[in-house]
Design a binder for these strands. Sequence first.
DNA 1: TTAAGTGCAAAATCTTTGCAAATGT
DNA 2: ACATTTGCAAAGATTTTGCACTTAA
Lengths: 138, 138
Amino acid sequence: MSSVNPDEVLKSHGLKNTKQRQLVLEELAKMNSAVSQPELEKTLGKEMDRVTLYRILSTFEEKGIVHSILDLNGTTNYASCSASCTEGHHHDEHLHFNCTNCLKIYCLDVKIPNVKMPSGFKAVHVDTTASGLCNNCS
Amino acid sequence: MSSVNPDEVLKSHGLKNTKQRQLVLEELAKMNSAVSQPELEKTLGKEMDRVTLYRILSTFEEKGIVHSILDLNGTTNYASCSASCTEGHHHDEHLHFNCTNCLKIYCLDVKIPNVKMPSGFKAVHVDTTASGLCNNCS
DNA sequence: TTAAGTGCAAAATCTTTGCAAATGT
DNA sequence: ACATTTGCAAAGATTTTGCACTTAA
């Protein structure tokens, strides 16, 4: 998705163009899977304060630049949003896939079949997460 | 599910029958929804050490007495397992529903339609979580 | 220039670990 | 009696907050 360059992304969301934000965007762009804060910290740790990283990720999420996905341990992972995500309204209703071998988290473009709710329950958002082996590990 | 009494549950899983474990089981039985450690702590806090509660929940999960569900914040919530859960092998492939109003988490007996995976991805487990309004809040 | 962003220190959570005392079988 | 379980204290881990310094616009 979006090979939009970092400068554009920041500008279009009214965010200042800082070296740290660039680094986070570049790192996320490199990944074909979602990353957790600890992973990002490991990669960027030397050049970025931990608190700054937390703040950047949370700003990005608010602005709709990334969306967050919980992995099997409840750790928050981040992935770039597709172009259709707007501030406060994510379109991440695709399939999240946790590989139990390499532990990567993928956002797969798969249509999720509708689930019919028991009477009285009104679903606004449905999230489906699968776990198993990814295409590299199977 | 299982209106099996606490004594039975503990005995059949080879666990000692302690007051604290009884309390946790009773509390879970009262609920028609999943509860988090903090909620349990709030209810039982006066009569139970926090660490003991953590340990009881983790023992129960290992033994297949409860299963855990992550809520929207990544907090672990616990619910009694249905009779078909056995040690190390849960059958919790039903729908988890987070009410955005009362914040309760329900385990609903709804068949989840199959999702077809992209080639190369082999799903072993699929978890579907919906959020919206529950039957009390809608 | 000045509002936004960063970095450090420190606080607030949340969860785990070690060990002595208490308890169930 | 003895292994298991509990409670407390303390350590780890993770995330948030406050505030002075820096930087992009």
